[in-house]
Nucleic acid binder design. Structure first.
Lengths: 120, 120
DNA sequence: CTTGACCTTGAACCTAGGTTTAAACCCTAT
DNA sequence: ATAGGGTTTAAACCTAGGTTCAAGGTCAAG
């Protein structure tokens, strides 16, 4: 499949696919006699996987570390659980931070409203 | 006060102060006869205010919009409440998103652990 | 044989919030 | 007068995740 076919099928741009290739996130494409990239159908699933992983909060760097498209072992179940657990922790930390911000903002609003009352 | 004095007092770098000035987040400094920036002591509080606002999730663009250092009216109480309430909403949205991620990650982990059990 | 759609490359551009660097100037102490 | 610290400027660099551009090659249809 040519890059445009893959792009349409996976719902991503062609530039994004080239970008991933350049960054080593997906394996370099086999080239046809005209120099065009020729990708296996499996890349569609890989690209969807990447979007999914991004949606879960994984950076491209982290995704690249999984070697998803390097033809290596497709990552062990234990490894996947380990990665997900790590991300779970960082998401929890993010939530805690956001809640703290929320708390402080609420306190500020309350203070300002109190000031408004006493001024009135 | 010279830029270095302000920087030390406020706990920021001099480059950051110049950056803020260039971006219009703080007012351009008065210059001494040697061309050195000469800042009023009040800038220290303004810089601290900026850090605080950033900590609450406000971008520099949003902070600049407040015209904190333009010598204008120092922002009305109602206006402050409005801005804070808006930020409160976006923080709530952020938390909701993060929780959704958390939920999905947990579901994935559970699925993988189930797979491990059935494989064992 | 030309038009249009596709592909190639490298490089520049974008947001956000700064940092770093280079080359120059100023001030104070010794 | 010279060393050291401070200051000035513009411009380049950084992370992240891409997009956009320019200039050119390829392919199938009409």
């Amino acid at each position: 499949m040519k890059i445009g076919d893959i792009a349409r099928a996976a719902g991503v741009t062609t530039s994004r696919i080239r970008f991933y290739e350049k960054r080593g996130i997906i394996a370099p494409a086999v080239r046809g006699p005209n120099g065009y990239r020729d990708y296996p159908e499996e890349l569609i699933a890989i690209l969807r996987f990447i979007e999914q992983a991004q949606g879960l909060g994984f950076s491209l760097k982290e995704i690249a570390g999984v070697d998803v498209a390097q033809g290596d072992h497709p990552i062990s179940c234990d490894e996947a659980i380990r990665l997900l657990s790590g991300k779970l922790d960082s998401v929890a930390a993010l939530i805690a931070e956001a809640k703290e911000r929320q708390r402080r903002i609420k306190a500020l609003i309350a203070e300002l409203q109190g000031r408004k009352q006493s001024a009135a």
